[in-house]
């Protein structure tokens, strides 16, 4: 999986610009992910790729289209020092994995990594390093394991 490295305060207008918000379809949105900030992203991103960023990833608008676009693009996980709260909720609710970990200075663009969610460990093969992270609170992990909020509610019916 490829690492896509981003800076601090990546806002949802960057992730999916407002002019593309006329559909909620993850695949259609994915075609415009980072259209202004990083036009090559939607062309080169591959299933399973990971985003690594600094603080406050996903700030700004409440548009669920942002995590949907990343999910549609095949992003398997976003690792950031911190997340904006609505983006965080939206991601968990639709089943996009997030890791809050301070690895911004450790993982570089192009590094080869492997994530073990259960053990809470990120392996960086390029740098031959390991980083621990705190798993999500139990309730949120349950939502993710169910495949998101809606599947969780359906299962509880």
């Amino acid at each position: 999986m490829r690492i896509w490295k981003f800076e601090h305060n990546v806002d949802t207008d960057q992730i999916i610009p407002a002019e593309y918000l006329t559909t909620g379809d993850a695949k259609k949105l994915a075609a415009h992910a980072f259209a202004k900030a990083r036009p090559e992203f939607s062309k080169e991103v591959k299933e399973g790729d990971v985003i690594v960023a600094g603080e406050n990833f996903g700030c700004g608008s409440s548009r669920e289209h942002a995590p949907r676009a990343l999910l549609g693009a095949g992003i398997s996980c976003v690792i950031a020092r911190s997340f904006a709260r609505i983006f965080f909720r939206n991601s968990i609710n639709i089943g996009l994995h997030l890791i809050e970990a301070d690895v911004f200075d450790k993982i570089e663009e192009g590094d080869e990594i492997e994530i073990n969610f259960e053990a809470g460990v990120i392996k960086n093969f390029t740098k031959e390093e390991e980083y621990k992270f705190k798993p999500l609170p139990e309730f949120m992990q349950k939502l993710l394991d169910s495949g998101g909020l809606i599947n969780y509610i359906i299962k509880q019916k």
């Binding site: 548009r63 909720r89 939206n90 509610i153």
Partner: peptide
């Protein structure tokens, strides 16, 4: 507070949210 579309749907269905 602001929320997303999926949880808006969940709240419309149940009247509740976490």
């Amino acid at each position: 507070t602001g929320i997303g579309s999926t949880e808006a749907a969940a709240a419309m269905a149940t009247g509740r949210l976490w």
